[in-house]
Design a binder for these strands. Structure first.
Lengths: 133, 133
DNA sequence: GCGTTTTTGACAATCATTGTCGTTGTCGCG
DNA sequence: CGCGACAACGACAATGATTGTCAAAAACGC
């Protein structure tokens, strides 16, 4: 046994995933990102993509959304914490900020003695374009 | 062809699932519920449990929660809409009401022209009992 | 009661995600 | 600078929840 230092190593693959996420705008599934990396000529295994994304998510560097569809979607974490308004039909996503919600969640959690609080909030609806008029 | 009336039929299995949910308190997975039904002597197929739960969820009669674990959890829908504060360690769940959040979500969605709005909100944290003091 | 239509349910299929484990690349230290 | 330890990689198999399939059974209207 040694000093249990969580040594995270800097590898080409990790950089590639980070770089890709850095220039991506919307949400993408792990498999999506993997396909894009291959197109770019980066040789990265699917397993590694999953693991890297998990690591980044753990580190709080990216957002994870779990839509009803079943696929996890990842996205580079934007500065301010925000939530998403997703169209059920076309998948269009609008970012919305909710300072009120943030503080409310924290307050409620604190009232019950909970610490290390995080939350997930997604709003689903039908956008104007997809609405049968 | 006939008049396309969505006739929902009243079957023993559907009643069994509803009844079970009616006396259950917490969240349970479909497989959980299926196992409980078998213990009771009710003969219901797993496929049917899934379908029934989906139907109930569609009808808004039960809540669905999708924890990071991956398994969908179902629960009889309580009167008022509310959300959940879940302990990461022990899974303890506290119900919390958030009228402010409700109206905020609706308002935000409306601002973007979205209709037929629903939302999911889960708060995760570490409860006092599980917190290493 | 009878026919029609939904529902059921055993089983197979799907498919994202995770585990495995030998190999490879990194990094710290001498 | 070179070596050794050890994390990371990655191809593949495994997992496991959910969904599709379709013939047989049940429920409802008349």
């Amino acid at each position: 046994m040694s000093a249990g230092s969580t040594a995270v190593r800097n590898t080409r693959q990790r950089s590639a995933v980070s770089a890709l996420l850095a220039e991506m705008e919307g949400f993408h599934s792990a498999q999506d990102l993997h396909a894009m990396l291959r197109e770019r000529g980066e040789r990265v295994g699917l397993t590694t993509v999953y693991r890297t994304l998990q690591g980044l998510a753990d580190a709080g560097e990216i957002d994870v959304m779990r839509p009803p569809g079943g696929e996890h979607l990842y996205r580079r974490c934007s500065e301010g914490h925000h939530h998403h308004l997703v169209c059920r039909a076309c998948g269009r996503t609008v970012e919305v900020a909710g300072p009120t919600v943030e503080s409310w969640a924290d307050r409620v959690a604190a009232q019950h003695g909970f610490t290390d609080v995080s939350h997930t909030l997604e709003i689903f609806g039908t956008c104007p374009d997809c609405r049968p008029h």
